[in-house]
Design a protein around this nucleic acid. Structure first.
Length: 932
RNA sequence: GCCUUGGUGGCGGAAUUGGUAGACGCGCUGGAUUCAAAAUCCAGUUCUUUCGGGAGUGUGGGUUCGAUUCCCACCCAAGGUACCA
């Protein structure tokens, strides 16, 4: 009987689907385990072999946990709102929902072929109204909340209103807009409703504000900072400019410290934690106020070096700083105007990449030193960014290299306030070795002492305060797109109002065109039925808008990360229509125990979703502040491109080894035309593309050998390998094993289809072992092979070292084959061990062993150390640390006896060549080392 | 520049707390089987060698009886981040 993988795999996939083998029960007496994959965006290109890597790993873990007796939740769904479907809609007029549906079906087919143990009954898509109902619901919760700094958590906005009514806002400690005005209770009560709403908006966690945004004209939308790479849009590479717009934002900055602190409690990869830490960018220092000569305004600066306050010799404002025009003197106006104009023309990218050019201009104004009263010239310079800190810097050239370079360039003074340090060549920025001088009351202090002293005095004199600054900005939450979640928002006199939660979901309206309107409104501006009737509580036609009962709805939609920020909780109770999830469901599943996905989401999805979770935790919706205890980043699988070498200007192609003798240009060809020995199928190439039809080949040893290059798997390099083709030729079990066998999960590694014959051959050998099953007592050898494997594989899975378990299986099967083992008592546990990795063949073998039903719940075999005990140990005998030969001794032989026998051995004499050993080290059970 | 991760045969990669470097697989070489091919099976495969051995885990030092593993300095690659005050 042959190993017919196609038949076996189809059979069991059908069985699992029909029996709902992997359906997770929320009301289970078993302990729970939640294994989650980052859900995919279903692109039109389908899956290539790189995509399932993480899914295979998580599936192995999920299946392993089922064998261990856990109730396992292992769901899958689709992040199905997104740009590509919308772009396609713009080009073709086809509704994005249609494209998305087609792509999802293709994904599902491909996923099904790989034999994953997903509970498909829980599947959802972020673009279905039944799902985004709850995305809209969370948005409303954020709108209805503010951040209380005193209790350090989000609280209902109704509490804030009560506080305003009782005491005004002077006592309140909250995270809010910078420019909130102070008022008393009586003043609050006297305000018009509209005015009150405007103030509340300054406190809400989801708020509307005029913000300077990254506007991408080509995409017609706003982008978040992390959607911009090197100054151009991540998708499409279009230029991005700064622009002021009224936008929804999320007050994620309120959670900066908690997002930072939370990292210590979760088992996530260090590089990922580092990039979140970096992104949040906490820095400790002081905010200092400088008076300006002849002006009522005081310039606030943030500094991390308050200890160097006496070293300030000038001040630099960002050219975009709002007060630049105000401070500039008549004489300097022309120069400043020209500089501001020039800076505004430079793109962010320009300013970023050009670090050598030093530029700036003097405003003619002077600030006054808070302690000495010295006059400090105010400059502007494009090295200061308006978006960081206060957009102003107190320049200390002796202690900061950029300030130093600026001072040198413009001949500004560089006072030295460090004891015993030479600053004639460069600034001195070493905090640890700082000793302050020429600084009045700070002289002789180190960095810590001086910083403390300065902050104390600033606070005492009311000229500044200690401050912690974060790089993290509030997240812009509006997108000028069609294919996203609509905001559950309508506008009364320009003030946003929430649609009642019982009326959700607010579904996306139909539009004729997916482009912005002629007036420049977002695509939803094309909808004709997009107004809210507060009486009827339903969406009605726009021409009914009367400003009394019918109001316009929001035209923006939510960004890509909205739908993925709480999906992991929704899987716990995905079809609940009454609540985002039931208390029982969240109470049982609690959170994700293992989350596997790519590291590219480090500062996007993985930061925003932690923010939403913290918020929902504050509001009592979820029981844990962090939703994923452990996270693993799977590495990328790269492609191995194949190159042919065309002799310039001809139709001749020379083999790899001959290319040096000619002037050639390398061309990439389809990797599927090349075999395991790098030989090209030249006839297939001639048919592949017309340009090769008349090609002539210069061979070496009768073969055409291709060159190889490892690079990202991509259609344009012709190195994409489709998992469907692999399943067809070798089967899903072979593919699963091979993906794991390639190397450690977290590392990136190149794909080369050739190697798959190794694991495929292993499965065939495994199959053969089960063809003549018997009930005989197993040999000691066979028991040893089995228990060695149980031990190693169990340890490997817990450590996510899947590559080494595949090797272990191979060794075990090689040994059992050599032993001619057909004993059921060995092969039955072996089938369970293999089952998480190669589930189809394992099910079939389980059936051959005489079982009915699925292997998936069979208990994981127990390791018994007594089978590994050996009577003899083969000792490596090394000389000066180098192993030279081996000797066998009884396992219980003592140190002295071993030493005696080794020294007496003729091979030892040979090695020593008459020298006498200086020292002999015997580690029982390990090694013998002779020094001499 | 800074942070992080990594560097072992022709290739992917193994190597418990420091204790036999190169497991396992690909590829390659030779052989068996076959009309032939595929498939399968057997033997060999780090380099070097005067066939005794010798060298060897990015480079150079150090600790140790013993280092791929620990320490110091450096080089290279990948990922993240950046006029961040």
């Amino acid at each position: 009987m042959q190993y017919n993988f196609l038949e076996i795999e189809a059979k069991w996939q059908k069985y699992w689907a029909e029996q709902q083998t992997f359906k997770a029960e929320t009301h289970s007496a078993k302990p729970k385990f939640y294994v989650l994959d980052m859900f995919p965006y279903p692109s039109g290109a389908g899956l290539h072999v790189g995509h399932p890597l993480g899914y295979i790993a998580s599936d192995i873990y999920a299946r392993f946990k089922r064998h261990q007796g856990y109730e396992v939740l292992h769901p899958m769904g689709y992040d199905s709102f997104g740009l590509p479907a919308e772009q396609y809609a713009i080009q073709t007029g086809q509704h994005p929902a249609v494209t998305t549906e087609t792509n999802i079906n293709r994904y599902r087919e491909q996923l099904d072929r790989l034999g994953f143990s997903f509970d498909w009954s829980r599947e959802f898509r972020t673009s279905s109204p039944s799902y985004y109902k709850w995305t809209q619901w969370v948005f409303i919760q954020l709108f209805e909340s503010w951040y209380n700094t005193s209790s350090d958590k989000a609280e209902p906005i109704s509490d804030l209103i009560s506080e305003f009514e009782a005491n005004g806002n002077t006592q309140i400690k909250a995270v809010a807009d910078e420019d909130v005005k102070q008022f008393k209770a009586a003043e609050w009560k006297a305000m018009k409703e509209e005015e009150q709403q405007a103030i509340l908006l300054q406190y809400r966690l989801a708020y509307l504000a005029d913000t300077e945004v990254n506007w991408c004209p080509a995409l017609g939308t706003v982008l978040a900072n992390d959607e911009i790479v090197n100054g151009v849009s991540e998708r499409g590479g279009h230029p991005v400019i700064r622009k002021k717009m009224t936008q929804w934002s999320m007050r994620i900055t309120a959670y900066a410290q908690r997002l930072l602190d939370g990292l210590q409690n979760i088992d996530w990869p260090q590089p990922l934690k580092d990039s979140q830490t970096n992104w949040i960018g906490r820095s400790e220092g002081a905010e200092v106020e400088f008076e300006v000569e002849g002006h009522p305004e005081k310039i606030k600066v943030f500094t991390t070096r308050p200890d160097t306050l006496y070293g300030v010799s000038f001040m630099t404002l960002a050219p975009e700083h709002p007060w630049v025009e105000r401070f500039t003197t008549a004489e300097q106006k022309a120069e400043i105007d020209a500089y501001v104009e020039a800076t505004s023309k430079r793109s962010e990218r320009d300013r970023m990449s050009d670090v050598k050019t030093i530029s700036g201009a003097f405003t003619g104004a002077y600030a006054l030193h808070p302690f000495t009263g010295d006059r400090i010239p105010i400059w502007i310079g494009d090295y200061v960014l308006a978006s960081y800190g206060t957009g102003a810097v107190m320049a200390v050239p002796c202690g900061d290299q950029r300030d130093y370079d600026f001072a040198k360039h413009f001949n500004l003074p560089i006072p030295n306030i460090f004891d015993g340090v030479d600053i004639s060549e460069e600034a001195f920025a070493d905090k640890a070795n700082t000793r302050i001088a020429q600084s009045d009351f700070l002289d002789g202090m180190d960095y810590y002492q001086a910083t403390k002293a300065v902050i104390e005095r600033l606070e005492a004199e009311g000229r500044g305060t200690g401050k912690i600054n974060y790089r993290l900005r509030d997240a812009v939450f509006s997108r000028q797109r069609y294919w996203g979640e609509p905001f559950p928002v309508y506008y009364v006199d320009g003030m946003p109002q929430m649609i009642p939660t019982e009326c959700l979901p607010l579904p996306l309206p139909q539009v004729d065109k997916y482009l912005p309107t002629e007036e420049g409104d977002p695509p939803l501006g094309n909808a004709e039925v997009w107004a809210w009737d507060v009486k009827k509580q339903e969406v009605v036609a726009n021409d009914l808008i009367d400003g009394e009962n019918v109001f316009p709805l929001e035209l923006n939609t939510m960004p890509g990360w909205a739908g993925s920020s709480q999906y992991f909780n929704r899987y716990m109770d995905p079809h609940n229509e009454e609540a985002i999830f039931s208390p029982e469901a969240i109470g049982y599943w609690k959170g994700v125990d293992l989350y596997i996905g790519g590291s590219e989401h480090a500062t996007g999805h993985l930061l925003y979703s932690r923010f939403w979770q913290q918020f929902l935790y504050d509001r009592g919706v979820v029981p844990q502040a962090e939703y994923a205890q452990k996270l693993i980043n799977q590495g990328m699988i790269t492609g191995t491109s194949a190159l042919v070498y065309r002799v310039s200007g001809t139709d001749q192609y020379v083999s790899y080894g001959l290319r040096k003798d000619y002037q050639v240009e390398p061309l990439r060809v389809d990797v599927n035309l090349v075999n395991a020995s790098d030989e090209l199928d030249v006839d297939a190439l001639r048919q592949w593309q017309p340009q090769f039809e008349k090609a002539e080949f210069r061979l070496e040893d009768g073969k055409y050998i291709v060159g190889r290059e490892v690079e990202k798997m991509s259609k344009r390099w012709f190195n994409v390998v489709n998992p469907d083709a692999i399943c067809e030729q070798y089967g899903a079990d072979s593919l699963r094993l091979y993906e794991m066998f390639l190397g450690p999960l977290e590392q990136s590694k190149p794909w080369n289809t050739a190697g798959i014959t190794g694991v495929h051959g292993f499965l065939k050998k495994l199959w053969k072992l089960y063809l003549n099953l018997n009930e005989e007592e197993p040999s000691a050898e066979a028991l040893k092979s089995l228990h060695k494997t149980i031990k190693k594989v169990g340890e490997d899975i817990e450590q996510f070292s899947f590559n080494t378990s595949v090797s272990t299986f191979m060794i075990c099967v090689n040994e059992l084959t050599a032993q001619k083992c057909s004993s059921k008592s060995i092969l039955e546990p072996l089938a369970i061990l293999v089952s998480p990795y190669a589930p189809h063949i394992a099910e079939e073998l389980w059936e051959m062993l005489g079982h009915q039903g699925s292997i998936s719940q069979a208990p994981f075999p127990e390791f018994k150390p007594e089978y590994l005990v050996e009577a003899e140990k083969e000792y490596p005998i090394s000389f000066n640390g180098k192993m030279r030969f081996k000797l066998k001794f009884p396992a219980d032989m003592g140190k002295e006896e071993i030493e005696k026998q080794v020294l007496a051995h003729e091979k030892t004499q040979e090695q020593m060549q008459g020298r006498s050993p200086k020292k002999v080290i015997v580690v029982p059970g390990k090694i013998v080392n002779i020094v001499g």
